[in-house]
């Protein structure tokens, strides 16, 4: 790890009554969550429960049908307010631009907004890639990376923004258990090192209980429960129990 310091400090996030429908089907049915500054908040739920759609609303890629989103108490209603806060989304697929090298991908935000001179951008890119253990990948193309490396490169790209809020969409999907642990440790490390607020959407129970300060369980577009990992484990609801304890029906 490099010892570069990020200037970010986590922001609080509140979602109230968020609703969204696609083609008459209600995907989010009045979501209410409150994420404290600097915490790791995991939203868990089965596939198709609306987790990724919720993330897209938070980053501004989707417009809600109803409801409000507040960042540090300010309603996220205009691009100006959104621009005040530095938010980054780590996509499920990584979403690295395939026509650019890993280094160019990581430095894209700084290059396109001309925030730093080229040599400084190069230095920052190398630092951020070293932070996620991809120091040697700077000149590689995304298609030369494994799934786990792509996700770490995507995290490095998010770090360049010096985010106050990082949103992770299924960060361990399609990864082997070892790579999943590496990514989980990365999220924990970033949270401790730069005090960024992390909102993780995942259906990975091991990841959620391994890294979360608090967990929300979303099923069929509704938040069923919110609490610490222990509180969620002990929450007495058949749907939550069914999701958390899902297992094969193999004869013992």
């Amino acid at each position: 790890m490099s010892d570069n310091q990020n200037n970010s400090s986590g922001v609080g996030l509140v979602v109230r009554g968020l609703r969204k429908s696609f083609g008459g089907q209600e995907v989010l049915k009045g979501i209410d969550i409150a994420v404290k500054p600097g915490e790791i908040f995991v939203i868990m739920g089965p596939s198709g429960s609306g987790k990724s759609v919720l993330l897209k609303h938070l980053i501004g890629l989707e417009e809600p049908d109803a409801g409000e989103i507040f960042i540090n108490g300010e309603p996220l209603t205009t691009p100006e307010i959104a621009a005040k806060y530095r938010m980054a989304l780590v996509f499920q697929s990584g979403a690295l631009l395939n026509s650019l090298t890993v280094g160019e991908n990581v430095g894209l935000y700084l290059t396109e907004h001309r925030l730093k001179p080229a040599d400084e951008i190069k230095k920052i890119v190398e630092e951020k890639l070293a932070d996620v253990g991809l120091k040697d990948a700077v000149n590689k193309m995304p298609n030369e990376l494994s799934g786990g490396m792509k996700k770490r490169a995507a995290i490095a790209r998010a770090l360049v923004i010096e985010p106050q809020l990082i949103l992770y969409d299924e960060p361990t999907s399609e990864l082997d258990p070892v790579s999943a642990v590496v990514i989980g440790d990365e999220i924990l490390d970033l949270n401790h090192r730069i005090h960024v607020t992390s909102l993780v959407v995942s259906h990975d129970r091991d990841l959620a209980f391994g890294i979360a300060d608090r967990i929300a369980v979303i099923i069929d577009g509704e938040i069923v429960t919110v609490g610490t990992p222990d509180e969620v484990k002990n929450f007495n609801d058949p749907r939550v129990k069914g999701f958390l304890n899902a297992d094969f029906k193999r004869d013992k």
């Binding site: 501004g60 890629l61 690295l96 935000y109």
Partner: peptide, 16 residues
């Protein structure tokens, strides 16, 4: 292909 593989969404999240 950039649209399908969320690269355009990634650009938008970076205010590009």
């Amino acid at each position: 292909s950039m649209r399908v593989y969320q690269e355009i969404d990634a650009l938008r999240t970076m205010n590009i």
